[in-house]
Design a protein around this nucleic acid. Structure first.
Lengths: 232, 232
DNA sequence: CCAAAAGTGTTTATGATACACCCATGA
DNA sequence: TCATGGGTGTATCATAAACACTTTTGG
């Protein structure tokens, strides 16, 4: 039999990464988009994307692109999937690998200076996005929701001290549904990864709500056993 | 701000697909490998891989490559993940997207004529494979196991009529662990997707075991509700 | 004194697990 | 008659889900 291919250049293509950044803050779950700075579709809303360079791997490309376009760095993004429709980019054959992360919006808003045309959008009020970005976003959101129930996301997303209500709000935002307060608290307590503090946050009620912090040791000890925070 | 990139060719790279084919038959779970037909690493065992062409998408490339190297066609493969270490292919910068499928080995053995240097290997006796193929295989196996408990794989993998024991063997192979016979049967029956036939298979015992077939309508009705076959 | 959010337990239902004996038959 | 695999049911436990009233306090 003949070899399928030698290595030649005829079939080289551009490889891109697109970063899907979900952000959480007191207002809810948002997604970050930029005004695309080059043709085609210049000026339209887009995920943060750019091309893979020869001397870097995809993870590195995603980090670099995100930082260049938004200033955000040092976050953990996860590779999701490749998109390869032949005509997905009208200029030239390009495949794109999507990455996603969920971050605390407030921790990174400093980065989003005027220098960048990046903007947070409420998930329910997304503008039109270019190419196959709507599909990328939808798939990422599914993965995010699946992860949220399988694995205790969220602790990195809250301030160091937080109330049960804030934690519950986080889960409700991500899952897009309301949860029973008592069941939620029971579940979280059964995981035994929070420390109840002797302080109260009075900003949202007259009675005040106890603050909790996250027991890093217990959390880490348990997280590789893989515990599930299935909440409904 | 300046655009991050114009479209130029400096950073074009080769894009490959690698197919991970798990096969099930009466002997158990196997994986298909080929003797690589071109340099580098010619003659070593490898996943079925080849390069993406400009006029096809990744799914199509995976189908084409698999057919060319093994004769196997018309199977559903699922995209898994991109591998992009800079030096993963020593000849030239190449990223690879892995695909996987689980098939009934007997249904496709016809295809594997002498023409192909493809061979099934028992999962526990894998030979050394090239590049990052060991990692691809390991990840694919994890996905396969996760899918097996979440979603009733396996019905496509058995002959039209099969015994409970065969179905249980299938799951035990995939999960790599023994299951309790009674619990397994109870669970499967509770799904209500099998039809018990009035025939027995006497090939493995004197008493004979009832044959079942798969109730296609019920199966399909339920499968988009998404039912789980969690078995331990 | 009252509105608004915080806090708190129990019951029920469902699914998971563990477990052991009789049956039918061909050799 | 006996060895071999086939077939069957129950009790227990853990987890999920549903559910409502009292507490606190600033205004």
């Amino acid at each position: 039999m003949t070899p399928i291919h030698h290595y030649h250049n005829d079939d080289k293509v551009m490889v891109a990464v697109d970063c899907i950044i979900f952000g959480f803050d007191s207002e809810g779950l948002k997604i970050l988009l930029i005004k695309r700075g080059f043709e085609p579709e210049k000026g339209k809303w887009s995920l943060m994307g750019g091309f893979l360079k020869k001397e870097e791997n995809l993870d590195q490309a995603a980090d670099r692109v995100l930082k260049k376009l938004t200033g955000i760095s040092n976050i953990y993004m996860e590779q999701l999937r490749s998109y390869s429709k032949v005509d997905r980019d009208p200029v030239e054959r390009t495949i794109s690998v999507s990455y996603f992360a969920l971050i605390n919006k407030d921790d990174h808003d400093i980065d989003l200076t005027k220098e960048y045309d990046a903007q947070w959008f409420n998930l329910k009020e997304l503008p039109q996005t270019i190419f196959d970005h709507p599909e990328m976003i939808e798939r990422a959101l599914n993965v995010l929701r699946r992860k949220a129930v399988t694995y205790p996301l969220g602790f990195e997303l809250l301030p160091e001290k937080f109330t049960m209500r804030q934690l519950q709000d986080l889960y409700e935002c991500i899952l897009g549904q309301e949860l029973d307060k008592r069941n939620f608290i029971n579940k979280v307590n059964s995981l035994d990864i929070l420390i109840k503090l002797n302080e109260k946050d009075k900003s949202t009620s007259k009675k005040g709500a106890f603050l909790y912090k996250f027991d890093v040791e217990k959390y880490q000890a348990k997280s590789h056993e893989g515990f599930s925070l299935k909440i409904a």
